[in-house]
Amino acid sequence: MIALLRRDLTLAVRAGGGFGLGVAFFLILCALVPFGVGPDTAALQPIAPGILWLGALLACLLSLDRIFALDHEDGSLDLLATSPLPLEGAVAVKALAHWITTGLPLILSAPLFGILLHLPANAIPPLLVSLLLGTPALSMLGAFGAAVTVGLRRGGLLLSLLVLPLYIPTLIFGTEMIRRGQEGGATATPLLFLAGITAGTLAVIPFAAAAALRVNLR
């Protein structure tokens, strides 16, 4: 499993791996919003949590179809399926690799992009915590979508249609947590919901995605 994680991370940072694409997309989105709605704090501050979470969501989506599609094309997925590594473990490791290459850079850069959107300083800690708790669920749900659509031509669009509705709960509780932090309210409830959704996906998705992969390998 460590070998697979190390290989996926190596492939992501080498030429054509797409590392940093998600963060660049996130930056452009957050930089464009002030041009669209105007640069005054009164307009930006209320929508900042939503924009940040939407940006994270869409940036995450960009690299999802690569999770299994590339391995399917070059035959690695067949070989992984016949290897001693359980397919459930392979799914979990590949989702983890996706989170490290996409989710983690988003979290680290989010405070900076929050400033672009006039997010007050007291909302930065809830922003970080909500992303830290929420983005693993994005990667896991995305891995499930990627497993269902693997092998389809132009599967990326279908993948977005399948996965985006599943992202709704994470989006709702993620933005709610930042908004409450911004207003100085209690953030415990959305925090627990976010953590619960992520824990649920971590428990269920490896099995669901591995089952989908087995069907698609037939």
């Binding site: 290989r7 080498r14 030429a15 054509g16 094309e73 070059d74 992984l80 290897s83 590594l85």
Partner: peptide, 21 residues
């Protein structure tokens, strides 16, 4: 399909499958 990754060297490709198996 040989299950090779173009961005990895010959030795890295083999070492990966050796570790997995």
């Amino acid at each position: 399909a040989d299950g090779l990754k173009g961005a990895l060297s010959v030795a890295e490709n083999l070492a990966f499958w050796a570790q997995v198996f």
